[in-house]
Computed example of a mutant assay.
Amino acid sequence: MLDLTRLRALHAVHVHGSIAGAAAALGYSPSAVSQSVGKLERETRTTLLERQGRGVVLTDAGQHLAGTAKQLLALVERAETDLEAQRGRPGGRLTVAAFATAARGLLPGALAALTREHPGLDTRLMEADPHLSPDMVARGVVDLAVCHDWDIAPLPAPDGLELAVIGDDTCEICVPADHPFASRTAPLRRADLAGQRWICQPAGSVCHDWLVRTLRVSGHEPELAYEAAEYATQLALVAEGLGIALVPHLGRGPLPAGVVAVPLDPVPVRRVYAVWRARAARRPAIKEAVRALRTRWAEIA
C-alpha cells in the first residue's frame, strides 16, 4: 500500500523542482522530504529521484508516479471538500499565496481574524509573484492566491479556477520633499513625467512593465536609474533625492521623512483578486477566507 504522505512529498518535489522547494511548500524540513521519498523508493523498489549537480530530477518512473499522485491528491481534496462542506465550518489546512505588498498589508489582519473565528483552521502563507500564483493554485501547490493585475496586463487564469475581486489598489507618485512636484496642488498628468529619473521594480515585473509602457505611450522613454523589488527600498532612495517612484497604497505604510506622495491623473490602479480551484469552491475555508480578505480590505482602504 502506497503511503499518501510520501506520494505528496514526491508530487511536491515534482511541482517545485527541488527538495528545498517541496519542503517549504509542505512545511517540512528538507531532510523529512528526502526521507519520505526514500521510503517511497524502498516501498516501490524503484529509483524515483536522481542527483543532478546540486539538485535532483525525477526519473521516468518518478514522473509517472508523480502524475498518479496528482490524481490521488485531487481525489483526496474532493473528499475533504465534501466533508468540510457537510460540516459547514472551515477546517484543515489552508495555504495562501500572496504578492509582497498584500502579504504585508492585507494578509496578516485577514488571516489573524480567520484563525480567531475558526480555530480548527490551519492557515499558511507563501509570498509569490502575482502572475505565477494562479498557476500555483491550478497545480495544487496552494489552496488560494491573492494576486493583482493592471490594465495593460490582465490576470492570467488557467482553466478550472474561480476568482473574486477583493478591491482596487490605487498608486501615487512619491517624490523628494524638495522636488518641484512636491508643491503641486493639482494632480500630475502623464505628460509631466518626462525627463524624470525613476526608481522602479526590476525588469520583468508587472509594475515595471506598466511604468515603461505607460510612459512610452505618452511619448517618453523613461530613465530607469534604480531597480528595487521592495517598495520600502524604493522610498528610501526617494528620500535621498535619487529619483521618483510609482508606489501603491497597499502595504506602503507611513512615508519616510523627506518623501511626498503626489496624485496622478488618471489614477493608476491595481485590481486585487482572490483565486481558487473551482472544485474547492464549496469548501467553507475558501468562502470564509474570501470574506475575511474583503472585510480586511474595507478596514484598510
Score class of each variant (00 low, 15 high):
L2Q: 12
R8W: 00
R8Y: 01
A9E: 02
A12M: 05
A12D: 05
V13R: 00
H16K: 10
G17N: 10
G17Q: 09
S18W: 00
G21S: 07
A24E: 15
G27L: 12
G38M: 15
T44I: 02
T46V: 01
L48Q: 11
E50H: 11
E50N: 06
R54T: 14
R54S: 14
V56A: 08
L58C: 02
T59W: 07
A61V: 08
G62R: 00
L65R: 11
A69H: 14
K70P: 05
V76N: 02
V76Y: 01
E77Q: 15
R78A: 13
E80K: 11
E80Y: 04
T81L: 01
D82R: 12
L83V: 13
E84A: 14
R87F: 04
R89K: 13
G92M: 04
L94E: 07
V96G: 02
A98K: 09
F99E: 08
A100T: 12
A103G: 14
A103T: 09
A110Y: 07
L111N: 02
A112H: 06
A112P: 02
R116E: 05
G120A: 04
D122C: 01
L125A: 08
A128Q: 04
H131A: 05
L132Q: 08
M136V: 03
A138Q: 12
D143R: 10
D143V: 05
C147A: 15
P154S: 11
P158M: 05
L161Q: 06
G167T: 06
D168K: 06
D169C: 04
T170I: 08
I173V: 13
I173Y: 04
V175S: 09
R184I: 03
R190Y: 12
L193F: 10
L193R: 08
C200M: 04
G204L: 02
V206K: 01
V206T: 10
V206Q: 06
D209T: 13
L211A: 01
R213L: 07
T214K: 10
S218N: 08
E221R: 13
E221H: 09
P222N: 14
P222C: 06
P222E: 13
E223L: 13
A229S: 13
A229T: 12
Y231T: 11
T233W: 01
Q234R: 14
A236Q: 15
A236E: 15
G241D: 09
G241F: 09
L242W: 01
A245C: 10
L246W: 12
P248C: 04
H249K: 12
P254K: 03
P254H: 07
L255T: 13
L255P: 13
A257D: 15
G258V: 11
V259A: 02
V260H: 05
P266T: 03
Y273V: 05
V275E: 09
A278F: 00
R283Q: 02
A285C: 00
I286N: 00
A289V: 00
V290I: 04
A298G: 03
A301R: 08
